[in-house]
């Protein structure tokens, strides 16, 4: 399963490059990273194939967001197609992303697992209908924080941001995504569900974002499937931007803001 090498620097982040100079030819990817970036690339290719746009967000290191976007928009390899990718500035942030993105788009975030704006964006992405890829270093995010997590676990984020780790990560993502376009049969979304699920028996709970408050406890919410009204009289503290869980037309709980989980 894992084809990663164990050639991780034992000298720790500070001496990572020093150690590497003595280990020419080492693979240098964390264990499992190759498999992870492969899965992320296929998912991203599927979004592009269905007309999706890639949003790039790196609140602490905006240059990385711009690099990802220009990589896809203006490819360096002749014969590869230009793809819709846009950097969202740190100033525009979560609010800008909310306004710009559409269901079926993808979002790549370059950030540490502690970055509050990244966590807020990624927590909302399911309600916005986005496929998400999180590139980062240091302590791993909580399981399931993004659809695909490409992580340099043993490194200090502020260093990995400048030693080329992240650049390599999204270069690989770009290169592999274009390989996927040579396999059109695999760009269809996988059909895993056979038949409608029932609201009650499935104990359904859909993650949605509150858009605005209406009258009589009603709230207009944004779900991956579109806008709808729900009743919020059972919960306290709902405001525009709240992430909530809806079951059978009622808001049952308000999620902690941007928990990232």
């Amino acid at each position: 399963m894992s084809v990663g090498t164990a050639a991780q620097s034992a000298a720790g982040p500070a001496g990572a490059l020093d150690a590497e100079r003595g280990a020419a030819g080492a693979g240098g990817l964390p264990p499992g990273f190759g498999v992870d970036v492969a899965g992320a690339a296929l998912a991203l290719a599927r979004r592009f194939a269905h007309g999706g746009t890639l949003w790039c967000f790196a609140p602490a290191w905006p240059a990385h967001a711009h690099h990802v976007a220009v990589e896809f928009v203006h490819p360096v390899v002749v014969g590869t197609r230009a793809l819709p990718a846009v950097a969202v500035s740190a100033e525009a942030g979560v609010a800008g992303l909310r306004t710009l993105c559409r269901a079926g788009d993808a979002l790549v975030v370059v950030a540490s697992s502690e970055e509050p704006a990244a966590r807020r964006a990624l927590a909302r992405a399911p309600a916005w209908g986005l496929t998400t890829i999180w590139i980062g270093a240091g302590p791993r995010p909580a399981p399931g924080a993004a659809d695909h997590v490409l992580w340099w676990e043993g490194e200090v984020p502020s260093q990995a941001a400048h030693t080329g780790r992240f650049v390599l990560s999204y270069h690989l993502l770009w290169e592999l995504t274009h390989v996927c376009f040579e396999h059109p049969g695999l760009l269809e979304e996988p059909q895993v569900c056979s038949g409608p699920a029932c609201v009650t028996c499935g104990d359904e709970g859909r993650l949605v974002e509150v858009l605005r408050l209406g009258e009589g406890g009603a709230v207009l919410v944004r779900a991956a499937t579109g806008l709808e009204w729900a009743d919020a009289s059972l919960v306290e503290g709902v405001s525009p931007g709240s992430l909530v869980l809806v079951h059978a037309g009622s808001v049952l709980t308000v999620l902690a803001e941007g928990s990232g989980e």
Binding site: M1, G32, V35, D36, G39, R140, P143, G144, A145, A146, D147, H148, V149, W151, P190, V192
Partner: peptide
Amino acid sequence: DEYRDPAAARAL
């Protein structure tokens, strides 16, 4: 491969 966060799933 089709799960959310496959890396975390494999580890689990």
